[in-house]
Design a protein around this nucleic acid. Structure first.
Lengths: 198, 198
DNA sequence: AATAGAAACATACGGAGCGTATGTCAATTT
DNA sequence: AAATTGACATACGCTCCGTATGTTTCTATT
């Protein structure tokens, strides 16, 4: 074993713990996940966990931070692939709904996260995600594509609608059919809220 | 003490336990609430709890059922006070946002409930609440007030938007100012989604 | 280069809480 | 009036979290 830098070793153990935690939280849920099993699966003990993350909530925060960064990246990718900013905005919403379909994201980000850490809009990274949506909306207002209004209010309502849509889809018997209906309604909602003259 | 009916006694103990649980869940959160303390405050022991509700989740279900019934009643009241069905629909949404401002409803119905029991749309009473919204929307479509579309999809998106709006308000530094902005945006959203010709 | 110090992680301990198994008493039934 | 069932209390075990302590390895200083 080559002599690695201390910081690198630490980063590896943190990554291993977060990896194991993601898996356990996603499958068993936060409350039912045992920290002994977690750490054992990562080849460590609870000592490493409490040293690196403080407590169980700290570990959840780290997991959420990682997932959230991935979500932001995917939303930006959807935005960048679109031809216009407006289409990109719609694509972001659809991408959000798609992501929220994954059990891991459902369980950790939408159910356990808020219950344990409180309102997601106060999380640092989620704020970043919301901020991105707000900036897009503001840009759309500035370029005259959408009706002037409070960008933050619009972003929050649209995000909320998308979130609930994905929860609906995930609980449905026929997710694909419901997904189509939800996306269609979401487009109507976005157009109606942002492009209606008042 | 007069000889009471057996069933009546049972109903009283159930009510006492639910009452104590509401208080504890609302203030400490579901996970941190101790069933020993709960039952002691109600003048009982954990034996009564497990006998009546099966387990801790069962107690939460009972609490949620009670709160949800109250919420439905308040939404119906808002609907009935309005002059037209459409105004009543908007009033329902505002009433929902107002209710979700209360810490008890936030904590139990919006945070812990979904985390412990899963997606709210699968809860029996919540389904009733959603069904009421759906029926209102369908009636509005039938009478020609709103644009024809999938009533369930519309109801879910609007409910989701209202839900997120209330979470936003509750976490804000100045809830009153944010409340005004959220309600305004919510009206725009409802009008835009439901009354835009396509 | 050697030693002192600190960081990273493991081990050990105590306490709290949930669920179940068992016990007791009152009420209903026959 | 005796028996049986139901409502609730008591007692126990098990798991799990958080902390306190121990050990080893890396880093820093001279």
């Amino acid at each position: 074993m080559a002599a690695k830098r201390r910081a690198q070793m630490v980063e590896e153990t943190r990554a291993k713990l977060i990896q194991a935690a993601r898996k356990a939280f996603a499958t068993k849920g936060y409350a039912a996940a045992s920290m002994d099993e977690l750490t054992a699966e990562a080849g460590l003990t609870r000592g490493a966990l409490y040293h690196n993350f403080g407590d169980k909530k700290g570990l959840l925060q780290a997991v959420i931070g990682q997932i959230d960064a991935e979500m932001v990246a995917r939303m930006r990718a959807a935005q960048n692939q679109a031809e216009t900013r407006w289409l990109g905005f719609l694509a972001e919403g659809v991408a959000y709904i798609e992501m929220a379909l994954e059990p891991e994201i459902q369980r950790i980000m939408l159910l356990d996260g808020p219950a344990v850490l409180g309102d997601p809009s106060l999380w640092p990274n989620q704020t970043a995600c919301l901020r991105a949506t707000m900036q897009t909306i503001q840009a759309l207002i500035d370029e005259g594509t959408v009706t002037p209004m409070d960008a933050e209010a619009a972003a929050r309502l649209i995000n909320g609608a998308a979130l609930n849509a994905s929860l609906w889809i995930a609980a449905a018997d026929d997710p694909h059919a419901v997904f189509a209906k939800a996306v269609e309604a979401f487009r109507y909602l976005a157009v109606g809220l942002l492009q209606t003259e008042r």
